[in-house]
Design a protein around this nucleic acid. Structure first.
Lengths: 145, 145
DNA sequence: TGTGAAAGACGATCCCT
DNA sequence: AGGGATCGTCTTTCACA
């Protein structure tokens, strides 16, 4: 992971659809050399994937919330994968502290949200907070000073 | 936003670097037609970008935490953009409830984390929880049933 | 590792449907 | 709005440094 790798990562985090030739121009390296470095970043797992980001609001998911789950021991949602694979749940963090995990959910209506909460309450006590906005929706990973 | 748009969104969310020709094969449409639909999805903002995802652990960011900020009125971090642009902060949610926002942070050490907390405490009272793992790191957006 | 050249594939565009 | 043909560009592979 030298400066060249970080330069390539920076470009691909900003625009994953850049061609190797455009990438090679930006980082001042030949296209085959860039392609080889990208291949290795993928192989070693530094790059975990390339994803189009969909605007949740414009896709109809106007209701967003954070749900802290205080689970009932063995009935913990983390032990029931089928719960976590619901499309409404967009992120799950297992955390320390007095709750077992935090769910980030995005839905199309409050009614749908109410139904989700009802389903989750079988596994633990959900404590919800509505998301008003995301001042930082996502930030590229850079080497820390 | 018909079924074809959703099929294209599904493919590009799974692999943003797919070529139009490969995409056209997968959704059974000609390449120019696919390109035109993608262009419109970008223009209308449904697709907000294409990003390479970097594995935080393999990039040296081994410490992750969620920080709820209980801000001191006008000194709220949401009013101080320079605070939120720090590279350690990877996501920010403005939320309802008794705290003003939730920060998702990723750092290379606990010492660095301590310094971050110290800096934040100027703006409000930070309440932190460590992230153990992400059972669902990210999920593609699909039409809800 | 990185470069340069060559062959095949791909992306952009135009026109027609 | 989609399909087919075109041309310029890009990806990939190779030999070589």
């Amino acid at each position: 992971m030298d400066a060249m790798d970080w330069a390539i990562l920076g470009e691909l985090q900003a625009d994953a659809r850049l061609s190797y030739s455009e990438l090679s121009r930006r980082v001042h390296l030949s296209a085959p050399a860039v392609a080889e470095r990208v291949r290795r970043l993928e192989e070693t797992g530094v790059i975990s994937g390339y994803h189009a980001h969909v605007d949740l609001g414009r896709a109809g998911r106007t209701v967003r919330a954070l749900i802290r789950m205080d689970c009932y021991g063995a009935r913990c949602v983390l032990r029931h994968e089928e719960v976590l694979t619901q499309p409404e749940i967009v992120q799950v963090y297992r955390v320390t502290g007095d709750t077992c995990c935090l769910l980030v959910v995005a839905l199309d209506s409050m009614a749908h949200f109410e139904r989700l909460i009802d389903g989750l309450s079988h596994y633990g006590r959900p404590s919800s907070t509505m998301v008003l906005s995301s001042p930082v929706a996502w930030r590229p990973v850079t080497p820390l000073a």
